[in-house]
Amino acid sequence: LRTVEMKKGPTDSLGISIAGGVGSPLGDVPIFIAMMHPTGVAAQTQKLRVGDRIVTICGTSTEGMTHTQAVNLLKNASGSIEMQV
């Protein structure tokens, strides 16, 4: 596991798309980074990659989380965001 910290302002975009989660079209698979926009906050860290499994978001485990719950957690996060992948 590695921990990645990002700074995100209220109008900034992380610039990632995620897939997976409980009840997702892919089945109940762990949440992972499906796409990254090169100008997004996540890409700027140069520490995240497409395919990385997201284990925690700001200390909250993604295990058993639906896709929608994970998306909302990421969208609503601002300031210092910590992810374990």
Rank of each mutant, 00 (worst) to 15 (best):
E82K: 14
I54F: 00
V41I: 15
M83W: 04
L1A: 06
I18V: 11
S78F: 06
S80N: 14
G20W: 03
G9K: 10
I31Q: 00
T45M: 06
T11D: 15
K7S: 10
Q46M: 11
S61N: 11
E5K: 15
I54Y: 02
V71D: 14
G9P: 06
P30Y: 07
H67G: 11
V22L: 12
V41R: 07
V41S: 08
G27M: 02
F32V: 09
M6V: 09
H37D: 15
R53G: 05
V50W: 02
L74G: 02
I16G: 01
N76R: 12
T39K: 14
L48G: 01
I33M: 04
G27F: 06
P25I: 10
M83Q: 00
D12W: 04
K7Y: 15
G40M: 04
E82T: 15
T56G: 09
V22N: 05
Q46R: 13
R2W: 09
A70C: 13
D52M: 08
E63H: 12
V71Q: 15
Q46D: 12
T11S: 13
K8Q: 07
K7T: 12
E5H: 15
T62P: 03
A70Y: 06
L73G: 02
S13E: 15
S80H: 13
K8F: 14
P25S: 11
K7C: 13
S78L: 06
H67K: 15
H37T: 14
A70K: 01
T62G: 01
T3W: 02
A77G: 08
H67P: 09
A34C: 10
I31S: 02
V71A: 14
T60F: 12
L73W: 02
M35E: 15
E5I: 15
H37W: 06
T3L: 10
A77S: 12
M83R: 04
K75G: 10
S17I: 14
V71R: 13
A70F: 05
I16K: 05
Q84P: 04
L48C: 08
A70H: 05
T39W: 13
I57K: 02
S13G: 10
I31W: 03
Q46F: 05
G79N: 08
P25C: 10
L74N: 07
K7Q: 14
E5S: 15
T45N: 08
L73E: 06
K47C: 10
D52H: 04
G27I: 06
P38N: 06
E82V: 14
N72T: 12
R49Q: 14
M65A: 03
A70E: 01
L14F: 12
T11M: 14
T45P: 04
Q69S: 08
M65N: 05
R53T: 13
T39F: 12
F32G: 05
K8N: 04
P10W: 05
H37N: 14
T66I: 02
L74Q: 04
R49V: 08
V85D: 02
L1W: 06
M83D: 06
C58W: 05
C58Y: 03
T68G: 13
T62M: 06
R49M: 13
E82C: 11
I81N: 02
F32H: 14
G51F: 04
V29Y: 08
S24K: 02
C58I: 04
T39N: 15
E63R: 11
K8W: 15
Q84R: 07
G9I: 04
H67R: 14
K7D: 12
N72D: 14
G64W: 04
G40D: 01
V29D: 05
V50S: 05
L1K: 07
T3C: 07
Q69T: 13
A34F: 06
S17D: 15
Q69E: 15
A77I: 12
D12N: 11
A77L: 12
E5C: 15
G79M: 01
G9L: 08
S24R: 03
Q84L: 06
E82M: 10
L73V: 10
V41E: 07
I33W: 04
H37Q: 13
T66N: 10
A19V: 07
T45H: 07
G20V: 00
K47R: 11
I31E: 04
R2E: 11
I57Q: 03
K47Y: 10
G27N: 06
Q69D: 14
S17C: 14
D52C: 00
A70D: 01
A34E: 15
A34T: 12
I31R: 05
I57D: 00
D12Y: 02
I81S: 02
Q69Y: 07
V50D: 02
V85E: 00
T3F: 11
S80R: 14
E63N: 09
I57A: 05
M36A: 02
Q84K: 11
R53S: 10
R49G: 10
A70V: 11
I54L: 10
T66S: 13
E82Q: 14
A43Y: 12
C58M: 12
A70N: 00
V50C: 09
H37G: 04
S78M: 08
M36S: 03
D28G: 03
A70T: 01
G40L: 03
L1M: 12
G40V: 02
M65Y: 01
G9H: 01
I57E: 07
K7W: 15
A19K: 09
V29Q: 11
M65T: 03
R53F: 09
I31H: 06
A77W: 07
H37C: 11
L26Q: 14
S61V: 06
L48K: 04
G51R: 04
E63L: 08
M35L: 10
A43R: 05
H37I: 08
R2H: 11
V22H: 09
I16V: 07
L48R: 03
M6K: 01
T68C: 10
T68L: 12
G20E: 05
V4I: 13
P10T: 10
N76Q: 13
T68V: 11
S13D: 15
K47M: 12
D52S: 03
E63A: 12
G59E: 04
V71Y: 12
G21K: 02
C58S: 10
I33A: 05
G59T: 00
I54W: 01
G23T: 04
I57T: 00
V22Q: 09
T66Y: 00
N72V: 05
T62D: 01
L48Y: 01
T68F: 10
T56A: 12
P25E: 13
I81Y: 01
L26T: 10
K8C: 14
T3H: 09
G27A: 03
M6Y: 01
T62F: 01
G27W: 03
V85H: 00
I54P: 04
T3E: 04
T45L: 04
G40F: 07
G40A: 04
G59Q: 05
A43C: 07
T68I: 09
A70L: 01
M6E: 00
K75A: 13
N76C: 12
G64S: 09
L74V: 06
T45I: 00
A77Y: 07
S13T: 15
V22G: 03
T60Q: 15
R53L: 13
D12M: 07
V50R: 04
Q44H: 08
E5G: 06
S78A: 12
T56F: 00
S24Q: 02
G79R: 06
H67V: 13
S13Y: 13
P10I: 11
P38Y: 02
G15V: 01
K8V: 15
E82P: 07
I16C: 02
I31F: 01
L74P: 00
Q44G: 09
P38K: 08
T39A: 13
I18E: 02
L26V: 10
V22W: 11
R49S: 14
T56R: 14
T62Q: 01
E5R: 14
T39E: 15
I81W: 02
R53M: 13
Q69K: 09
T56L: 03
G23F: 00
G79C: 07
G20A: 01
T39V: 08
G23H: 05
L73F: 12
V85S: 07
A19W: 08
A43F: 10
G79K: 07
T39M: 13
T60V: 13
V55A: 12
V29F: 04
L74I: 13
I18S: 02
G59R: 05
D52Y: 04
Q69P: 01
I18L: 14
T68P: 09
V71W: 13
N76W: 06
G20N: 05
T56D: 08
V41T: 10
L48S: 04
V71M: 14
Q84S: 10
L74E: 00
I33R: 03
L74M: 08
G23Y: 00
P25G: 08
D52I: 01
M36K: 04
T68A: 14
E5Q: 15
K8S: 08
Q46H: 11
K47W: 04
L26A: 11
A43K: 06
I18N: 00
G64V: 02
V41C: 08
D12S: 09
L48P: 03
T39G: 15
L74C: 06
G15C: 01
D12V: 06
T62A: 05
A70S: 04
K47L: 11
H67C: 15
N76A: 12
P30K: 00
S78W: 07
I81R: 04
D12E: 15
